[in-house]
């Protein structure tokens, strides 16, 4: 996969939705963004993400952990006077980062759980015991659902992205160990 090509696709998708020149860099998305405000715009800045994408410079964003600080609250999208779908763009970039194997561990482990058990939180025995005490029906086990989710993960890019993420993590770890050993020698 050619990253630049994929970024071009994302920029074009954005252009299809809105006149890209219509982002006049007003910063309304930034003042609406709770993450930007809490970090004083230093760590995370949606206006700059839009600009980098439109100027073909988003590849540098893909490896940055800050890309994942977005809470997906969609406040940016609602406040943009030009209807730029900022939060959807951020999600497209996160999807592309995942294709490269860069995704926070907690997100990966939850998604693996979803495919393995059918749920982000798998029904547990203790939860069911408490439910019975509260007069609630036990949570049904969904064997067919589990199978279907695996089928969907295979029919889309989800499984291959998860594999890529694992490889990327292993490569980082190996590089890290090499540096440690080099330091000790």
């Amino acid at each position: 996969m050619d990253v630049e090509e994929r970024l071009e696709e994302i920029a074009q998708k954005l252009a299809k939705r809105v006149d890209t020149k219509s982002c006049f860099q007003c910063g309304s998305c930034v003042s609406a963004c709770p993450v930007s405000r809490i970090t004083d715009g230093e760590l995370y800045h949606p206006r700059r993400i839009v600009r980098a994408t439109l100027e073909g410079e988003a590849s540098k964003l893909l490896e940055q952990p800050s890309l994942w600080l977005c809470t997906s609250c969609h406040a940016c999208l609602e406040h943009c006077p030009q209807k730029v779908p900022v939060s959807e763009l951020v999600q497209d970039l996160q999807n592309l980062a995942s294709e490269l194997g860069v995704t926070p561990d907690d997100i990966v482990s939850e998604v693996e759980n979803i495919i393995a058990t059918g749920w982000a939180l798998a029904p547990s025995e203790s939860a069911n015991k408490r439910r019975v005490e509260l007069g609630l029906p036990p949570i049904p086990l969904e064997e067919k659902g589990k199978k279907d989710l695996h089928t969907i993960a295979k029919a889309t890019e989800l499984l291959s992205r998860l594999k890529k993420i694992k490889e990327h993590k292993a490569a980082l770890k190996a590089a890290d160990e090499a540096i440690q050993e080099g330091g000790e020698a």
Partner: peptide, 24 residues
Amino acid sequence: ISGFTCCPNPLTLSHIDHEAALAI
């Protein structure tokens, strides 16, 4: 009813693969 699975979580699965999230 039985048969449902994860919605899936719009804060995790769709960040990795939006299309898979739509299908689920």
